[in-house]
Protein backbone atom coordinates (compact mmCIF):
# COMPACT_ATOMS: atom_id res chain seq x y z
CA UNK A 1 0.00 0.00 0.00
CA UNK A 2 1.17 3.52 -0.81
CA UNK A 3 -0.20 6.77 0.52
CA UNK A 4 0.58 10.43 0.95
CA UNK A 5 -0.33 12.24 4.16
CA UNK A 6 -0.22 15.75 5.51
CA UNK A 7 -0.23 14.64 9.16
CA UNK A 8 2.60 13.15 11.29
CA UNK A 9 3.36 9.44 10.83
CA UNK A 10 2.72 7.12 13.80
CA UNK A 11 5.34 4.39 13.37
CA UNK A 12 3.95 2.24 16.20
CA UNK A 13 0.51 2.11 14.60
CA UNK A 14 2.03 1.33 11.20
CA UNK A 15 4.06 -1.55 12.70
CA UNK A 16 0.90 -3.00 14.14
CA UNK A 17 -0.72 -2.72 10.72
CA UNK A 18 2.08 -4.93 9.33
CA UNK A 19 1.77 -7.60 12.05
CA UNK A 20 1.79 -11.06 10.49
CA UNK A 21 2.69 -14.30 12.34
CA UNK A 22 4.26 -15.70 9.15
CA UNK A 23 6.79 -12.84 8.96
CA UNK A 24 10.07 -13.27 10.79
CA UNK A 25 11.51 -10.00 9.51
CA UNK A 26 10.26 -6.44 9.42
CA UNK A 27 12.54 -3.76 7.93
CA UNK A 28 11.49 -0.20 8.71
CA UNK A 29 13.13 2.72 6.93
CA UNK A 30 12.43 6.24 8.14
CA UNK A 31 13.58 9.25 6.12
CA UNK A 32 14.06 12.12 8.58
CA UNK A 33 14.42 15.86 8.15
CA UNK A 34 18.03 16.76 8.93
CA UNK A 35 19.33 20.15 10.00
CA UNK A 36 21.92 20.69 7.26
CA UNK A 37 22.15 20.56 3.49
CA UNK A 38 25.37 21.15 1.53
CA UNK A 39 26.97 23.00 4.41
CA UNK A 40 23.97 25.23 5.18
CA UNK A 41 21.84 25.09 8.32
CA UNK A 42 18.30 23.98 7.56
CA UNK A 43 15.35 25.10 9.72
CA UNK A 44 12.51 23.18 8.11
CA UNK A 45 11.31 21.56 4.89
CA UNK A 46 8.16 22.02 2.89
CA UNK A 47 7.06 19.13 0.65
CA UNK A 48 4.65 19.49 -2.28
CA UNK A 49 3.47 16.92 -4.81
CA UNK A 50 1.46 16.24 -7.93
CA UNK A 51 -1.55 14.77 -6.16
CA UNK A 52 -2.82 12.41 -8.86
CA UNK A 53 0.48 11.30 -10.39
CA UNK A 54 2.30 10.90 -7.08
CA UNK A 55 -0.39 8.54 -5.82
CA UNK A 56 -0.52 6.60 -9.10
CA UNK A 57 3.25 6.21 -9.39
CA UNK A 58 3.60 5.24 -5.73
CA UNK A 59 0.99 2.52 -6.17
CA UNK A 60 2.77 1.29 -9.29
CA UNK A 61 6.06 1.06 -7.38
CA UNK A 62 4.45 -0.96 -4.56
CA UNK A 63 2.82 -3.28 -7.14
CA UNK A 64 6.19 -3.76 -8.86
CA UNK A 65 7.78 -4.55 -5.52
CA UNK A 66 5.17 -7.26 -4.90
CA UNK A 67 5.99 -8.77 -8.29
CA UNK A 68 9.73 -8.73 -7.69
CA UNK A 69 9.48 -10.00 -4.10
CA UNK A 70 6.31 -12.12 -3.96
CA UNK A 71 6.76 -13.11 -0.31
CA UNK A 72 6.93 -9.52 0.93
CA UNK A 73 4.29 -7.29 2.50
CA UNK A 74 4.96 -3.61 1.94
CA UNK A 75 3.71 -0.26 3.16
CA UNK A 76 5.09 3.12 2.04
CA UNK A 77 3.90 6.53 3.20
CA UNK A 78 5.24 9.96 2.25
CA UNK A 79 4.51 13.18 4.10
CA UNK A 80 3.71 16.48 2.45
CA UNK A 81 3.42 19.93 3.98
CA UNK A 82 5.82 21.61 6.40
CA UNK A 83 8.12 19.37 8.47
CA UNK A 84 10.41 20.34 11.33
CA UNK A 85 13.92 18.95 11.95
CA UNK A 86 13.76 15.32 13.10
CA UNK A 87 10.29 14.66 11.73
CA UNK A 88 9.70 11.62 9.54
CA UNK A 89 9.20 12.56 5.86
CA UNK A 90 8.88 9.06 4.47
CA UNK A 91 8.46 5.63 6.04
CA UNK A 92 8.85 2.27 4.30
CA UNK A 93 7.90 -1.01 5.99
CA UNK A 94 8.73 -4.31 4.34
CA UNK A 95 7.91 -7.60 6.06
CA UNK A 96 8.82 -11.11 4.98
CA UNK A 97 9.49 -14.58 6.33
CA UNK A 98 13.24 -13.93 6.17
CA UNK A 99 15.38 -10.80 6.34
CA UNK A 100 16.99 -10.83 2.86
CA UNK A 101 13.79 -10.20 0.94
CA UNK A 102 12.59 -7.62 3.49
CA UNK A 103 15.85 -5.64 3.23
CA UNK A 104 15.92 -5.81 -0.56
CA UNK A 105 12.29 -4.86 -1.00
CA UNK A 106 12.65 -1.93 1.39
CA UNK A 107 15.67 -0.65 -0.51
CA UNK A 108 13.90 -1.02 -3.84
CA UNK A 109 10.89 0.91 -2.55
CA UNK A 110 12.75 3.91 -1.15
CA UNK A 111 15.09 4.19 -4.16
CA UNK A 112 12.17 4.02 -6.61
CA UNK A 113 10.03 6.47 -4.65
CA UNK A 114 12.82 9.05 -4.54
CA UNK A 115 13.50 8.68 -8.26
CA UNK A 116 10.00 8.36 -9.70
CA UNK A 117 7.32 9.92 -7.50
CA UNK A 118 6.59 13.60 -8.26
CA UNK A 119 7.31 15.10 -4.85
CA UNK A 120 9.45 18.19 -4.25
CA UNK A 121 10.97 19.87 -1.23
CA UNK A 122 11.63 23.47 -0.44
CA UNK A 123 14.24 24.16 2.22
CA UNK A 124 14.12 27.05 4.68
CA UNK A 125 17.62 27.89 5.85
CA UNK A 126 18.70 29.42 9.16
CA UNK A 127 19.48 32.60 7.20
CA UNK A 128 15.79 32.89 6.32
CA UNK A 129 16.40 32.02 2.65
CA UNK A 130 13.92 29.63 1.06
CA UNK A 131 14.97 27.49 -1.91
CA UNK A 132 13.73 24.53 -3.88
CA UNK A 133 16.27 21.74 -3.60
CA UNK A 134 17.70 22.25 -7.04
CA UNK A 135 19.17 19.70 -9.39
CA UNK A 136 22.65 19.87 -10.83
CA UNK A 137 22.35 22.07 -13.95
CA UNK A 138 24.49 19.63 -15.93
CA UNK A 139 23.19 16.22 -15.03
CA UNK A 140 19.89 17.02 -13.31
CA UNK A 141 20.71 14.93 -10.27
CA UNK A 142 19.91 16.18 -6.80
CA UNK A 143 22.68 16.76 -4.27
CA UNK A 144 22.74 14.20 -1.51
CA UNK A 145 20.04 12.02 -3.04
Amino acid sequence: MFSIRDTPLDITALRQQMADPACGALVVFEGLVRNHHEGRDVEKLHYTHHPVLAQKEGERIVAETMEKFPMVKALAIHRIGTLEIGECAVVILAASAHREAAFEANRYLIDSIKARVPIWKQETYATGEVEWTSPCPNCGSLPGS
Binding site: H49, V90, K114, V117, I119, W120, K121
Partner: peptide, 10 residues
Protein backbone atom coordinates in the same frame (compact mmCIF):
# COMPACT_ATOMS: atom_id res chain seq x y z
CA UNK B 1 -0.24 19.41 -19.48
CA UNK B 2 1.95 19.25 -16.36
CA UNK B 3 5.59 20.30 -16.37
CA UNK B 4 7.57 18.95 -13.44
CA UNK B 5 11.13 19.70 -12.29
CA UNK B 6 13.37 16.86 -11.03
CA UNK B 7 11.71 14.97 -8.19
CA UNK B 8 13.09 15.43 -4.70
CA UNK B 9 11.08 13.23 -2.38
CA UNK B 10 12.47 11.30 0.56
Amino acid sequence: IAFMPPFAGG
